[in-house]
């Protein structure tokens, strides 16, 4: 992927390499790597926002407490609106997902940071966890009636088998799109930023053009970081609603 044009080298994908933190070459499953570091920082950031911000338990909130309450209220309302009132018992899980993705995305925008959510391994685990738990939940709550999700009662009888096949395929495509959307958006943005930054190093005086471009791109990436966290969470709520109320 690294390009060699003229005399300079751009390695946009180097930022995604998983490296052991304390030297060595081999990445075992337990090795503390940059993944470990940035996930730990994510946990720290979430704790600072939600615990440190609310430690006053004030009736009139401080700025930090307001932010914590806003994020709580935002996801709580999303779960209630999309998945319904009975979806609220899964609120802590969905809040965990949202806070992790949001802070991993945002921390990844710090220069020289490692973006854990740009890796398909991470997003696939997240998406598969949602997919499997939602499917299991659907069968546990409704038994075989959960299959009605694929049997469109409102369609003409002849069309129903065809629709069932399409619904089934789209159901199994969910985790794929769910995970690739997030990882793809993160990876693409960071790679493009790195390419522009590489140009800035090589163009001399004219480098203000790529610097402007990186600035604009950075603003866009901030937006994407928040939106992708939002999209992942709201899709989770939609899938949860299907499991709770499978009839169309």
């Amino acid at each position: 992927m690294a390009e060699q044009t003229g005399g300079f080298v751009i390695k946009p994908m180097d930022q995604f390499v998983v490296k052991p933190l304390f030297g060595g070459d081999v990445v075992h499953w337990y090795t503390p790597t940059n993944v470990t570091l940035w996930m730990a920082l994510t946990v720290l950031a979430i704790t600072v926002l939600l615990m440190l911000g609310t430690r006053g338990r004030a009736i009139v909130p401080t700025r930090g407490q307001s932010m914590a309450e806003l994020s709580y209220g935002f996801i709580h309302k999303m779960v209630e609106d999309v998945a319904g009132k009975d979806g609220l018992r899964f609120f802590p899980y969905i809040m965990t997902l949202f806070m992790f993705i949001l802070f991993a995305n945002l921390l990844g925008l710090i220069p020289f940071a490692f973006t854990t959510t740009s890796h398909i391994a991470v997003t696939a685990v997240l998406a598969l966890t949602v997919f499997i738990s939602v499917t299991v939940l659907g069968f546990v709550l409704h038994g075989a009636k959960f299959l009605k999700l694929f049997w469109v009662d409102s369609a003409p009888l002849v069309l129903r088998p065809v629709l069932a096949i399409i619904e089934l395929i789209s159901y199994f495509a969910r985790p794929v799109s769910h995970s690739i959307r997030l990882a793809g958006a993160m990876m693409a943005g960071h790679a493009v930023a790195k390419v522009f930054a590489g140009f800035a190093g090589a163009l001399g005086v004219a480098s203000f053009v790529p610097i402007l471009a990186v600035t604009a791109l950075y603003a866009l990436e901030l937006l994407v970081a928040a939106i992708q966290a939002y999209v992942f969470t709201i899709l989770t709520c939609v899938y949860l609603r299907d499991a709770l109320h499978p009839s169309h």
Binding site: Y30, T33, A121
Partner: peptide, 22 residues
């Protein structure tokens, strides 16, 4: 020269590590 790291995202050797820490 240009070291080809490819896509680190599909370097399956790092998967167990990432999944574990995740």
């Amino acid at each position: 020269g240009p070291q080809d790291v490819g896509m680190p995202q599909i370097d399956f050797a790092t998967f167990p590590n990432q999944i574990f820490w995740l």
